[in-house]
């Protein structure tokens, strides 16, 4: 008996349901089940569990499930350190995204220019991504440790010293300044860009810009040459071709890059831990380090959970509007 026959003779609801649950689909469902269950438990289950813990009074080794509402959130948001962390993570994410997108695009355009040895350049730019953030952090902390300059510089300051560029020496990862420093009445920390964060951005960009380049390169290769050719025939300048055709066509790549880089930067932990340890003071401290410190050093489990939920919300705030925006533009197209 073939399927066509069933459809002919029994076009009832039962049959439609049966058709929905074909063997193929059943197999597919069964095959997916283990990972669905695993993800439901180990990802969403634990997110929910963390959310629940963040509303309790658990502080110390022994669990304490006394419900305290949003008390933990109030506590961490009132603390100088967490306010500083939020400032830092916003600054880091903005600088990290901008520098990566710009550098990545520039590198991609250069590599895409059909230069000789393209594969070599591509590999060189991409290699840092293969290194772990731990290694990056340690190596760049050596580079950016200023030493007792100007008399006894180390790292990049020593290099500048040898080059006779003493004027460019700086405190790098030990720079305490926050620019432009201002402090609204509601803030317990100075707002602005912590100068010590910039070397960290440099290290992170060194690591991830190659990856951004690869993404843009794939995007560039996906743009049909005839589009640009047509524009050139119509008398468009190279800049116009880039501005009116290449850039708009790269928009989906930018979106993906923002999401991937954004969630890396909002959750950054290892790089900060090894490069600056959060210092000087808390100038490069981020929520990831805060969660670790407050949970495992101070044993304030509930506050750690609250901070982790705040991180989750921050990632959602970055990503959700982009997804919604993207979905809308997809529909319009």
């Amino acid at each position: 008996m073939s399927h066509a026959n069933i459809r002919e003779f029994a076009p009832s609801d039962v049959a439609r349901r049966r058709r929905w649950l074909t063997r193929d689909r059943l197999i597919a469902l069964l095959m997916l089940m283990p990972s669905v269950v695993a993800i439901a438990v180990f990802v969403y289950g634990f997110i929910a569990w963390t959310g629940y813990i963040s509303l309790t009074a658990w502080s110390g080794i022994a669990p304490d499930y006394t419900f305290v509402g949003l008390e933990n959130y109030r506590t961490i948001f009132r603390s100088v350190r967490f306010q500083t962390d939020i400032r830092n993570t916003v600054v880091f994410t903005l600088f990290f995204l901008l520098s990566n997108l710009i550098l990545g695009l520039v590198l991609a355009l250069l590599v895409d220019a059909r230069v000789k040895g393209e594969a070599i350049f591509r590999s060189i730019y991409l290699f840092p991504m293969a290194v772990s953030f731990i290694v990056t952090g340690v190596a760049w902390s050596w580079i950016f440790t200023p030493g007792n300059f100007p008399s006894d510089p180390t790292g990049i300051n020593l290099l500048l010293d040898r080059l006779g560029l003493d004027a460019l020496q700086s405190a790098w990862i030990t720079d305490k300044r926050v620019l432009p420093e201002f402090r609204p009445s509601w803030a317990r920390t100075k707002l602005g860009v912590p100068m010590a964060m910039l070397p960290v951005v440099v290290a992170a960009t060194w690591q991830m810009s190659g990856f951004t380049m690869a993404m843009y390169l794939a995007g560039l290769r996906g743009i049909p040459e005839d589009l640009r050719e047509a524009a050139r025939v119509d008398g468009a300048s190279e800049w116009q071709v880039f501005r009116r055709i290449t850039l708009p066509m790269l928009q989906p790549v930018t979106l993906s890059a923002v999401i991937i880089l954004g969630h890396i930067s909002l959750k950054i932990f290892d790089l900060i831990m090894t490069m600056t340890g959060g210092g000087p003071g808390n100038a490069t401290d981020v929520p990831g380090v805060f969660v670790y410190d407050i949970t495992f050093n101070a044993n304030k489990i509930a506050q750690g959970a609250a901070a982790a939920i705040v991180m989750l919300v921050m990632v959602a705030v970055l990503i959700v509007p982009y997804i919604v925006y993207n979905a809308r533009t997809e529909v319009e197209r």
Binding site: R81, I294, A298, N299
Partner: peptide, 26 residues
């Protein structure tokens, strides 16, 4: 443990910004 964590962190901050009031408040 709980006190040590704040203690070490707040003095690390003080070592950087020398802000007496902030240290006392923390």
């Amino acid at each position: 443990n709980a006190f040590q964590q704040t203690w070490s962190n707040s003095l690390e901050v003080f070592s950087s910004n020398l802000d007496v009031e902030e240290l006392i408040a923390t």
